[in-house]
């Protein structure tokens, strides 16, 4: 009984080994190129009226950083949001599916979106920002939401999935 079993076992183990060595070819993984990711958000602020001698401002957010925007008090700026790899162009072509949301205290600034999609709903890649009084400081959070087929008639930040969140420290002087 055991004699019958032994040659079989040997053959079987050898076979198993063969399978495993034969399959051990050296194909290594290649790095995954993820072109999907948004990794940075830049906000550029141009003063509406250049006569007051207000400087433009710009800051870029990437995860882990805390960029600061220095703004003039009671001034009006035209804000433009851009992303890495020119992704803002993509967002513009699919504007019906996207919206950006600005969150900051009213004392710090008041934000009004100035660009609209084909349905007349705001996008938010462009906005007009009116700053508060001198000495105010706080945070401005800009959230890009993907609202494919969900974008409501009244802007709603709670709908859809977040593509990117940019955070900026704002100080008004």
């Amino acid at each position: 009984m055991k004699k019958l079993f032994r040659p079989y076992l040997t053959a079987f183990l050898l076979g198993a080994l063969l399978i495993s060595t034969a399959s051990c070819d050296d194909d290594d993984p290649k790095p995954v190129e993820d072109s999907e990711n948004i990794t940075s958000m830049t906000i550029s602020l141009e003063p509406v009226s250049t006569t007051k001698g207000i400087d433009p401002a710009e800051a870029t957010y990437t995860t882990g950083t805390t960029p600061t925007l220095q703004l003039a008090p009671n001034a009006t700026y035209d804000a433009t949001i851009t992303f890495n790899d020119n992704i803002e162009a993509e967002i513009n072509t699919e504007a019906e599916d996207h919206e950006l949301f600005y969150k900051a205290s009213e004392d710090l600034m008041i934000v009004q979106k100035t660009d609209f999609d084909d349905n007349g709903l705001p996008i938010g890649l462009k906005a007009r920002i009116t700053t508060g009084n001198s000495g105010e400081t706080g945070e401005l959070t800009v959230t890009l939401k993907h609202q494919e087929g969900l974008k409501p008639d009244v802007s709603d930040e709670t709908i859809g999935s977040t593509d990117f969140v940019g955070k900026f420290n704002v100080s008004i002087q």
């Binding site: 709670t158 709908i159 969140v165």
Partner: peptide
């Protein structure tokens, strides 16, 4: 259920039903 941030999850739980 496809969301992109912890805030989205909090919004979904608070809403109690799908937005659509």
């Amino acid at each position: 259920s496809h969301i992109g941030s912890p805030e989205d999850l909090a919004y979904a739980i608070a809403r109690g039903r799908p937005s659509n």
